[in-house]
């Protein structure tokens, strides 16, 4: 299999990388720019916030080449469907982009997504022509319900946002992957390249990583490590794992030993 021929398709659009990256928490725009480049990602998430009138910072968007990357605005900060819908419309007005990472997280401690509000918002936004990529808990029933209302993907969490704890929802994600007819993007909680590889080996279509790259000692090197891990996991999944065995199966010949029997 040639990895170049193994394309991810979302909403009919070919996406060149199965690693999506977030742009939060980078120490500088320069570092963010270099890390995104090293990650090989095409899909890059951004958030919407009020302009700080008293402290006008540089515009981070100027550091992202919009010809090269597909910006994926999120609705972070939304506590219910109405707030998410408002943010979605603002994001579209600001960027002209109708792709959206839908997230509704009323709980400030674990930032767990509200399934009911997410589904409600998804229904409205799909009808308004948004390409909706919903961030959800790893709930296979919810994933199917979202797919039925027309979301372009489902994005179950591995662990709560920013926790770097890896695939704590493994069993449920396996079911989601098994049942999904839309791409499954494992989002949130992926802390190491091995977690990304693990998700890809299980058959996830993509992974979304932010904190693990942005807060690494060297975000550019870590971005590269995630790129390689995501690709490795995907190739392994497409190849199919070799059989497991309880007993040892020698790799070297069991004949011709240098001894007399």
């Amino acid at each position: 299999m040639n990895i170049a021929d193994d394309k991810l398709i979302i909403n009919g659009q070919e996406i060149s990388s199965r690693l999506f990256v977030g742009t939060g928490k980078f120490a500088s725009n320069e570092l963010m720019k270099s890390a995104i480049e090293a990650s090989g990602a095409e899909i890059v998430t951004v958030a919407l916030r009020r302009v700080d009138i008293d402290n006008k910072n540089d515009d981070m968007l100027s550091a992202i080449d919009s010809d090269k990357y597909l910006l994926l605005p999120n609705t972070s900060g939304a506590r219910d469907s109405a707030e998410a819908i408002r943010l979605a419309r603002l994001a579209r007005a600001a960027s002209g982009i109708n792709w959206l990472k839908l997230e509704v997280t009323p709980d400030p401690y674990y930032l767990l997504p509200d399934p009911i509000e997410t589904l409600k918002a998804a229904e409205v936004l799909v009808k308004e022509g948004f390409v909706v990529l919903p961030y959800i808990n790893a709930d296979p029933v919810l994933a199917k319900r979202l797919e039925e209302v027309g979301t372009a993907t489902v994005m179950p969490l591995a662990a709560p946002i920013g926790t770097n704890r890896g695939l704590s929802t493994r069993d449920a994600i396996e079911i989601i992957i098994d049942q999904a007819n839309v791409p499954v993007v494992v989002d949130a909680g992926i802390g190491l390249p091995s977690h990304a590889a693990d998700a890809m080996e299980m058959g996830a279509d993509a992974v979304l990583v932010n904190t693990a790259i942005a807060t690494a000692a060297d975000p550019v090197m870590m971005a590269q490590a995630f790129k390689l891990a995501t690709e490795a996991g995907r190739i392994a999944y497409k190849t199919g794992a070799a059989a497991e065995s309880k007993m040892a199966v020698a790799s070297s010949p069991l004949t011709g030993f240098l001894r007399d029997e």
Binding site: G22, G24, K25, V46, A47, L48, R49, R50, I161
Partner: peptide
Amino acid sequence: IELIRFVGGG
């Protein structure tokens, strides 16, 4: 009036 812009986010 709300003035809003994109910022880094995940």
